[in-house]
């Protein structure tokens, strides 16, 4: 059973299976649905998931400490912990801390990169740095994650100051869902940007978890 997206944004998740698991995936709440889908698809019932609130991304300087605290809290219960975060704006601090703690994390700068595949994302980075990205989760949580924290619900006149340098909105779709496509279009309209939909699936998240699962 998965909690709703608002809970994933605000509070995170503690999803333990019925059987004792050996591996814990400690993830950002924005990845909960995708990771649980991968657990189900691959029958990874030896893996548990716990998530920190997705909204930590609004304060990237808090991510490293929050992850550290969670690793220390859970490490006695599992033989292995995998941190399902990329660098996520921590400027290399999360990687350094994971190295100190002896836990692995996902390679790459952020989820937009690893969903697309880090190599593929890096290849187009030079031509695409004026793109603003949304994933399935961010499309669903657009108001809570972008529109309101940026103050655009109260001050829509700030839109061009905040988004004026972007040239397009890229919706990286993890799933095929016409309702999300429509919502992504509405997000693009609100931001005043043309929409490009790109199906990524789970990208490097899948390969990273496959490696951890064995």
């Amino acid at each position: 059973m998965l909690v709703d997206d608002t809970t994933l944004t605000e509070d995170g998740l503690d999803a333990r299976g019925e059987k004792p698991a050996r591996i814990l995936v400690l993830a950002c709440g924005a990845l909960a649905r995708e990771i649980l889908a991968l657990f189900r698809l691959n029958n990874w019932d030896h893996m548990d998931l716990t998530c920190l609130p997705a909204k930590l991304h609004l304060y990237p300087d808090q991510i490293t400490e929050a992850v550290t605290k969670a690793v220390k809290k859970h490490r006695g219960d599992y033989s292995r912990i995998f941190v399902a975060y990329a660098d996520c704006g921590t400027g290399g601090q999360l990687q350094a801390r994971c190295d100190e703690l002896g836990v692995e994390m996902i390679a790459g700068p952020h989820c937009y990169s690893f969903f697309e595949g880090n190599d593929a994302f890096a290849k187009v980075a030079e031509d695409e740095f004026t793109a603003f990205y949304l994933t399935d989760f961010l499309v669903k949580q657009f108001d809570a994650f972008i529109w309101k924290p940026m103050g655009l619900d109260r001050h829509p006149e700030l839109r061009d100051m905040l988004f004026g340098n972007y040239t397009k909105l890229v919706y990286q779709a993890q799933t095929n869902d016409p309702a999300l496509d429509a919502k992504a279009q509405a997000c693009a309209d609100k931001l005043g940007l043309p929409l490009e939909r790109r199906f990524t699936g789970y990208g490097d998240l899948q390969t990273a978890l496959e490696r951890v699962s064995v």
Partner: peptide
């Protein structure tokens, strides 16, 4: 204060 308020003040 948060970014939107600072932007309005800056404006």
């Amino acid at each position: 204060l948060f970014v939107p308020e600072v932007l309005l003040a800056a404006n």
